[in-house]
Design a protein around this nucleic acid. Structure first.
Lengths: 220, 220
DNA sequence: AATTAAATTTAGACAAATCTAAAAATTAAT
DNA sequence: ATTAATTTTTAGATTTGTCTAAATTTAATT
């Protein structure tokens, strides 16, 4: 089966929302896709006839297992292109997302498998998100939010909570990237801000909001 | 300005047809695009309002200089991706065209310029067609059809007349590719077929039609 | 030059994806 | 348990790109 760009964007958005929300709603999806709730309803009907979502009107929706499979294919394409853009074309990590949004809809299976091989079967994209293999399987991350890291334990940044250019710009400014090793030295109760330290550089403070969007793994 | 995939396909098709036909007609373009003459008329009106074609109804059409500029941008993207697919991902030359048809519509200028640099600013694609640079300029080829090559003069294959998988399959079977050196030993008047020789291999015969679709340059 | 043939354009319809405004269903609140 | 607020869906329109069938224009032929 073949899908339109619009269909793929809906499938992908539902998949992403399902990850962090117990139930995905019409309004939420409309917000995510910059469209209107009425348009979402229309598309849900269409995706239902294609057996990509379970959907009962007024009672929510979710991806079928077939829908999830399609979603993982799109995400695989997206993240492989992101890796290519960063690694081979030397794009900054805050530039790759938008271009990959377009490239991900080129759906030749052979192209993507050869690209994967050419890139050396990478396991994570430039934001630390895992890349599904050609069977749709991917690493499950043991990462936690920086806000839940214990004090004075070294951890390594392994991902970010989202790909907004705002977040990535801030991280670039603070010199934090995937692989950066750091420790939390102090937690301020007033606003839940954290004082962190990177190597032997002067300690500095980051907001609770930023901390929640920084994924880290324990271990030197 | 930004263009839809449909618009880009029309612009590109007109550009290609203009190269080999004095005047491009509605029917010809419809045939090329696998669509109906009525659809072509509709699109021509649209492209006229965007100043990409000169068009007076019942009296033909052609690309404006702006239209040509857009066309060269699309062709640049197409041929760079073809080069990438063949050179980096090791696709056969008869597989690259269809995939590049999709990739060419991803229109980030920065992406294409960085891709160009990454590939080492190639001058021709895997079929021997010249790749426009980021100013839209490209090599003008001195190639001639194999059917007009003088007898017993060595020449080198530099391109093919079209990218149909049928032609490319035939060439693969006959072991002819870009860079192959050959000579025409004899021309048969009856059907204009040619006997050709490649290196020290046994001579063999090719049809007039194939000869016309093989572009060669003189010189060892 | 009149008629026939071919090419092109118009008119009207349709599918995809979207929208606004109104109606219906669900959920929350008094 | 009604009423009010929110969410979701329907109804009807719009845009893009396409189609068929009919009408028009141009070109070819006798």
């Amino acid at each position: 089966m073949n899908f339109t760009v619009a269909e793929e964007n809906y499938i992908k958005a539902i998949w992403h929302l399902q990850r962090y929300n117990n139930d995905v709603t019409t309004n939420l999806l409309a917000g995510q896709l910059n469209t209107r709730p009425a348009s979402v309803t229309d598309m849900l009907k269409k995706l239902k006839t294609k057996k990509l979502v379970h959907y009962e009107k007024y009672h929510g929706f979710s991806l079928t297992s077939e829908g999830k499979k399609i979603a993982l294919g799109i995400i695989r394409r997206h993240r492989l292109w992101e890796f290519f853009l960063a690694e081979k074309l030397h794009f900054d990590w805050d530039e790759v997302h938008d271009i990959a949004e377009d490239l991900e809809h080129v759906s030749s299976k052979k192209l993507i498998d050869k690209l994967d091989e050419y890139l050396g079967f990478p396991k994570v994209d430039p934001h630390g998100d895992p890349i599904p293999d050609n069977q749709g399987k991917m690493e499950t991350s043991s990462a936690i939010g920086l806000h839940e890291l214990e004090l004075n334990k070294t951890a390594e940044v392994s991902g970010v909570g989202n790909q907004s250019s705002e977040l990535l710009e801030l991280l670039k400014h603070k010199n934090i990237r995937i692989g950066t090793k750091l420790e939390v030295k102090k937690r301020f109760e007033f606003d839940q801000s954290l004082e962190i330290k990177i190597r032997n550089l002067p300690a500095f403070t980051i907001s609770e909001q930023l901390a929640k969007n920084l994924l880290v793994k324990y271990g030197k």
